[in-house]
């Protein structure tokens, strides 16, 4: 559905996208995961034809953007990171206007607009002015405006930034539903939980490059020799003593909760318990964690996703 080959984009001397290649198959949800400034938005802007690339090739549904940009745009739906809707119009007027830009007219336009509003849970508010909406409702309308023309490839650029958990869940459910109906989705986010929950394959981006890509298991396998111990204690944990335990790479401290990054099959668990016992520290909770995408990202780039 979408193929990006050796994409390069510079802003002056800064290399924003460096030799990025990936392929999104029809019917999958493909995630671009990376912190702010990783090059996700630049990549999206090139795919949607907003900015010109310096080199590389992008094809959508077999159409080369260099030669058939307008045709390719009909296959695309875009949900920008920032709200891109008219506050002084109603929800229905917004959705109908953006549907009309893709050639929908008359009864088809009206029908699809109402169906789309129903899909995002705003049918009851169809004739209300957008300025009366909550932030979450605006986010859902933002998605509806990109969906109304039934695109083959939907590009969602961080669609859940700054919204309440209820609206976030609604959006996540809607995305999964669209995918079940056969829509291909390119999803950018810096929330690893979202990428884990939604995406069949993920590309991890940092500093304009894709540092790893694959499904969740493949990505986890990149750091398979790492494992994690989470401990919650009563009182102040003896961090200095714990950091001396052999095989512990790193300790994350959050209040009285500790997360140990361990490498190799050593006796770290026994040693940690011994230190806590010696220091008379009471253990409230203990678990062994699997690596998550945050761990993968941290291991591969040395940075946190939300740094």
């Amino acid at each position: 559905m979408l193929e990006v080959k050796k994409l390069v984009k510079r802003y002056g001397s800064k290399l924003a996208v460096s030799d990025v290649s990936f392929k999104v198959e029809k019917g999958e949800i493909y995630g671009l995961l990376g912190p702010n400034g990783a090059g996700k938005s630049s990549t999206i802007n090139i795919i949607t034809g907003l900015i010109k690339k310096d080199s590389g090739q992008v094809t959508i549904g077999g159409l080369d953007l260099d030669r058939e940009l307008t045709k390719a745009k009909y296959l695309l739906g875009i949900v920008p990171q920032d709200l891109a809707i008219y506050n002084d119009l109603t929800a229905l007027q917004n959705v109908k206007f953006f549907g009309a830009l893709y050639g929908l007219t008359g009864g088809t336009l009206q029908k699809q607009a109402l169906e789309t509003l129903e899909f995002v849970g705003l049918k009851d508010k169809a004739r209300d002015k957008v300025k009366t909406f909550s932030g979450g409702m605006k986010r859902r309308l933002n998605i509806a405006c990109g969906l109304v023309h039934r695109p083959q490839l939907l590009i969602l650029d961080e669609p859940t930034v700054g919204i309440d958990p209820q609206s976030r869940n609604h959006i996540m459910e809607a995305i999964l539903q669209l995918n079940r109906e056969g829509m291909t989705i390119l999803y950018t986010t810096h929330y690893m939980e979202e990428a884990e929950q939604l995406c069949s394959r993920i590309a991890i981006m940092d500093a304009g490059q894709i540092v790893a890509q694959g499904n969740l298991q493949e990505l986890r396998s990149l750091i398979e020799e790492n494992w994690y111990i989470a401990v919650k204690v009563k009182g102040t944990p003896p961090v200095d003593e714990l950091s001396k335990v052999a095989g512990v790479e790193k300790i994350d401290l959050n209040g009285n909760a500790l997360r140990f990054t361990c490498r190799g099959k050593h006796s770290q668990l026994r040693d940690i318990l011994e230190v806590l016992s010696r220091e008379h520290t009471e253990i409230l909770d203990l678990s062994i964690d699997e690596p998550n995408l945050e761990d993968v990202f941290l291991t591969l780039t040395g940075k946190r996703l939300r740094d």
Partner: peptide, 8 residues
């Protein structure tokens, strides 16, 4: 952004 990304 939406206008520029549309085929119009």
């Amino acid at each position: 952004l939406r206008l520029k990304a549309s085929p119009y």
